[in-house]
Design a protein around this nucleic acid. Structure first.
Lengths: 206, 206
DNA sequence: ATCCTCCGAAATGTATACATTTATACATTT
DNA sequence: AAATGTATAAATGTATACATTTCGGAGGAT
């Protein structure tokens, strides 16, 4: 079991809420769990820190990130900025087969909407929206920000309330994209993200 | 010598152009240079990878990042998006003592403009502009993007041509901030960043 | 009761030794 | 001459052992 696989397994545990924000991860326990020495575990922890899943300080135990409401607020602000920018440029470069993939992702995410995999489907859908912009670095930054949100959503046990509205937003987004209505699509997306922000902040203490 | 210090020293070498884009970093050589084993060197390399200085692949040597012109283009686009956003929010929350610090940073950066520390002074100045926005995460992302640019600027031996214009932009930015002219300040900054983009791209092959 | 101080247990950091994978040079073939 | 295959050298990955630092509770002073 190599560092990458250990990191991937632990990441799944964190975004699914098994490890919650602020929880400590001990090198020795992880090493025992995967039957390896602490060396590859240390590598795995550094990889996870690079992806923003945990905080690492020298000589201190690793901790799952635990953001304050104001930090969460900044993350959602950045998501609004970057995701609407991706969407704008996606619409400007949209081609026919892009829409086919978007429709497929929409259908897939609708099926998963009520299951515990809703977050995976949601990201796959949004990723398909942003893909035509061809901005790999920007997309990767969005992915990091969304992962940060997801860790807290899972950790605080937030269930998507308003699933109906959430699904309708997705459908409206696709409709706006099909008619190249850039500003309308951006407005829908901005409110969509603002709604998600409210839902998480409402569940957070402090 | 701990991982953090090794990483800091190597970072200084990379942003100063001693190690150039694409150059390989071998664990053994670094370990010998700092008189430590390869374990803390591996930690240092992971830290550097997290900050975007090098690329790390399993079983392969670490390499200083080496972006294509189109990737550089995306980085400057992101800088424009994030830095203008920081500037807007800074102006909206600007207070008297913020301007004092900005003036000081401007004076300092003007002194360093002709020396080989011009990039440090430039970042210190821009950081003082964005600080009033109180967006630590956004500022950190800007810092990462700027570091990426700086590695290539140093590696390709780009000297700031147009230093006069560059300094005038800084003065104009401060003037615009003092009069809370949000749109004017954003326009100056956007062109300022676009100029930097052109200067680097012109020096890059391909 | 609350706050220090100190000490032992436990966790992290590092060196060494060895295993595994990659890279370089050279021979062989087309 | 270019391309392919192979062996040797060199680099990276990991386990173990030990050094260093932190954490948590016992004990005493306020």
């Amino acid at each position: 079991m190599s560092a990458e696989k250990i990191a991937a397994t632990l990441e799944a545990d964190i975004v699914s809420g098994i490890f919650r924000p602020g929880e400590e991860l001990k090198q020795g326990e992880i090493a025992a769990r995967f039957s390896v020495s602490r060396i590859p575990v240390r590598d795995a922890l550094q990889l996870m820190a690079a992806r923003g899943l945990i905080d690492l300080e020298r000589n201190r135990r690793a901790r799952v990130i635990d953001l304050s409401p104001s930090e969460i607020d900044e993350v959602y602000h950045l998501r609004g900025l970057l995701e609407t920018d991706c969407l704008r440029h996606a619409i400007r470069q949209l081609e026919a087969d892009d829409l086919v993939k978007i429709e497929a992702a929409l259908a897939h995410s609708s099926i998963d909407a009520a299951s515990d995999r809703w977050a995976d489907g949601d990201w796959a859908f949004h990723k398909s929206l942003y893909a035509p912009a061809k901005r790999p670095r920007e997309l990767s930054m969005v992915e990091d920000l969304r992962r940060t949100c997801r860790i807290h959503i899972a950790g605080y046990g937030v269930l998507p309330t308003l699933t109906d509205r959430w699904l309708k937003d997705h459908e409206d987004l696709v409709a706006a994209m099909r008619s190249r209505a850039e500003n309308r699509a951006v407005d829908i997306l901005a409110r969509h993200i603002a709604d998600a922000r409210e839902t998480l902040l409402a569940a957070m203490p402090g």
